[in-house]
Structures are given as structure tokens and as C-alpha cells.
Write a protein that binds this DNA or RNA. Structure first.
Lengths: 228, 228
DNA sequence: GTAATAGTGTCTTTTAGACACTATAGC
DNA sequence: GCTATAGTGTCTAAAAGACACTATTAC
């Protein structure tokens, strides 16, 4: 039985408004997306999300549901767009607003039912969530060198090597370390923290941070994929 | 009195789902947006839009309402995003999905109540439509050299000078004609039609067309704003 | 012819790619 | 010392900016 709704003017209305969050991270050179078990005990998995409450901003819903279902917060989040074609949700007319939230490599997900899947794979997902995930991958690839979209995907302080590994996983390319450092610094999106980090052998690396946590565009500089 | 809705599960639901379309064009070097009179006889103007019918794709609603309210079609349309913060519509909980639709300079709007306003001005608009319009301007500026977003803003066949005038109005910059032609051709988004056009004195200009009408990204080539 | 617009060629500047070289750590 | 990682310098290649020059039209 599908949910329905009628408004006070007598017209059919959406049964609910949903939000979904694509949480992306990098592990071992691969781009991963976070999925949760669906309400009910189905096999099929879904993006974390839920219904917008009355009077609630959808962005707040997205963050609230992300925390409820996975225990995670989001250092960076931006809207991906609306997904509202008929039939996208078998429960009824339920448009969804999707968000993109990158998180750092090694992020531990408190909720045990959450699971990482390859973002670029073909794991079937509930609703139209595969389409949403594909849109998220396309978005983060497209903005990689033009914005600070990776803010959320790197910890508060990171080395240029850390950043390079994340960029390489997203772009599916290999960058020359020297050129990468020069070009990332040239975007003006990062600044040195002054600290250094030594882990094992090798010269300690200088640490950097992003100059802003809010979604921003870089200097509009070009960056092609330089496959070494 | 505000509209409300309750779904078949007993929970509050959105009263409706809306779409709004930002129609942009260029006239005399300025970027203009199309507004219509609001239903009812208010002074305040709004973006053309309306409610999504049950079982209807929001994109189809946007095109249908655009045609109903202005008589226009849209050669190119893409989703801008969802606008759904509480209070955006005084009539009740009504999320809106906004679209961006550029149309060629000189487009005649059949409906007499439609009016062009400066896209970058501060004309007050109904609902959150000023915010939507600002997002549209930012989007078209950002994608200008990276996509065929101007497909809709140029007629089926155009000269490089036509294109340059449109690009200059969007980017608020002046381009060197020679460099502009070289760089636009280098994007791979346009191709010669073989035809020429002579209007008044001067050498006839070769005509070009876009190679695709679907939203596409260019070759990822860089283009800075070259202010002559 | 002149004025006007279209289009080509090419030199310079800027950005990116490649890669040799130096620097500093653990062992 | 050797190996591993970090970081610098610089040469080359590619893209963009500037601008002189040629081409074709109306008058």
C-alpha cells in the first residue's frame, strides 16, 4: 500500500520530502561510499537519509539523519540536487534532496550496520540511489581541482602526500609529487600550519590546512590530469 | 491561511512540490532574466513556475509551466537545485526544484505579462526567487568555458562574433576576437555549418553550430578571463 | 578608393609536465 | 653508510594573451 497525501486545497501532494547523503571517502586508493541497511530487514542497502520534518531545513535533516544512522558528522557538505522523478520511491510520491559529504580516510563509522562500498562499482542500491551516487562521483571528479570539495576528505592538518593520495583516488590518475605540490599550493586553497609530521623513515613532512571549510571555488586555475 | 497536508500515515507532508525556471538571455551586453506577474494581482514579480502534478517529472513540469506562463520553449535546460528552506513560500511547506534555461538574444516572449529584468540587479522578487536567480547567474558564469551551457543562448547557427557577444555579457569581460575564436573552437563544442552570413558591410562570417544540445562538459580546457 | 567586420599568423607570457637534484629522517 | 620520504630547481611543452596583418563585404 502506497502512501498518499492531499493538501488543504484538495490537491494531491507529495507524501513526504526526503534527504539522502552520499558520504565519500578514500581507502587504499579507492573511492568508497557509505551505505546503511534499510529500515525493515531487507537485503538491499541504501544511502543514509530520511524524511524532512515540518519546519526543518533539508540540510539540517541530512546532517541529523547522517548522525542518527551512522554516528558521523560531516566536515563539508553541499547539495547535489533534487531527485524527484515518479516511481523513485516505491512507498509513494517522495522527492529527495541529495547531499554530498566527503569524510577523511580512516574515518571510523560508529554504527556497525553501516558499510563502505566501491563508489564506482555497480552494487545495486535501493530507490534511485545508484543514480544519486553516480551523480556524486561525477560532481566530486568535476570539482576536484576547482574547489575545496576535498576539505572534508582530508583531516584538519595534512601533508601534501596525504592530499596527493586523495586526489589520485578521486581523479583515478597519478600525479608527479613535485608538480602536485606546486599546483595545489597555487590554488590558494591551502596554507601551511607550521607543524611537521614524521612517521617512520624519511624527511618529516610539512603540514597544511584548508583556508576555508565552506564550499568555495579556487582561483579558477586550470588543472588537467597529468598522468605520470 | 496556509496550506497544509497530511499523508496517509498521519504525518505532516509538503503541501505541494513546485518548479521554477530561470530563463536567461543577453540583450545589449546585459544578462537578463524573465519574470512573470504572480497569480493574483500583486505588484511583485516571480520566476515562471508552478506545481508538479502527481506522476509528473519535475523537468516536464518546468517546461510545461514555462510554456503556459510565457509561451516559450527551452532549447537547453538543466537543474539548478532544490530550494526548500522553511518559510520560502508564504502559502505553506512547498519545496521548489529550480531549473536554468538560457534562450537566444532577441527571443520574443509571446505572453505580454512576461518582463525581462537585469539578472544581476536587485529587483525584489517573490518567494526566494532572488536567491534562485543569483544561483543561476553564478552557475552560468562558472560553467561558461567548461560546458555547452550557452547552447540555449545562441541560435541554431551563429557566428563567432555572436558567440563572443554572449560570452562577454555572461563573463562581464571583453575578449580578443582572434583569441576568442581560437579558444572556442578548441573546446570541441562547436563545428562549422558551412554557411556564411553577411549583414551590412564587412566580410561575411562563417556560421557555427553546437555539436550537441544536451548538457555537456567541454574538454576540460582552461579559460581565464582575458580582459583586453 | 574608405570603412567595417571577419579571419590568420605569430610572438610573448603563463601554466603545466617531467625529472634531476638536494634535504632529513630511521636503521 | 643505505633506504625512504620530503621538498627544490629548472628545462620543456602546451595553452592563453596580444596584436599585426590579410580578406571580403557595402558604400
Amino acid at each position: 500500500m502506497r502512501w498518499t497525501a492531499t493538501n488543504s486545497e484538495g490537491y494531491p501532494a507529495p507524501a513526504a520530502l526526503a534527504t539522502d547523503v552520499v558520504v565519500l571517502t578514500v581507502r587504499e586508493g579507492s573511492l568508497l561510499a557509505l551505505t546503511v541497511a534499510r529500515d525493515g530487514d531487507r537485503d538491499e542497502r541504501a544511502l543514509p537519509g530520511g524524511f524532512v520534518g515540518i519546519g526543518e531545513r533539508p540540510l539540517d535533516t541530512a546532517l541529523r539523519k547522517l548522525h542518527e544512522k551512522t554516528g558521523l558528522g560531516a566536515p563539508y557538505i553541499e547539495q547535489l540536487g533534487a531527485f524527484a522523478d515518479p516511481g523513485r520511491d516505491p512507498r509513494g510520491w517522495i522527492p529527495s534532496i541529495a547531499y554530498l559529504a566527503p569524510v577523511p580516510p580512516g574515518t571510523v563509522v560508529p554504527d556497525a550496520s553501516a558499510r563502505w562500498i566501491p563508489a564506482r562499482g555497480d552494487t545495486p542500491l535501493a530507490f534511485d540511489h545508484r543514480e544519486v551516487l553516480d551523480a556524486a562521483v561525477e560532481r566530486i571528479e568535476g570539482k576536484l581541482w576547482w574547489s575545496n570539495v576535498t576539505v572534508g576528505m582530508l583531516p584538519g592538518a595534512f601533508t601534501l602526500s596525504d592530499a596527493r593520495r586523495v586526489y589520485e583516488a578521486i581523479a583515478q590518475a597519478r600525479y608527479d609529487p613535485a608538480t602536485f605540490g606546486r599546483d595545489l599550493k597555487a590554488t590558494g586553497l591551502i596554507e601551511p600550519t607550521g607543524a611537521q609530521r614524521a612517521t617512520g623513515p624519511g624527511r618529516p613532512a610539512a603540514m597544511y590546512r584548508f583556508t576555508s571549510n565552506r564550499p568555495e571555488w579556487g582561483a579558477g586555475r586550470r588543472k588537467r590530469i597529468a598522468v605520470v
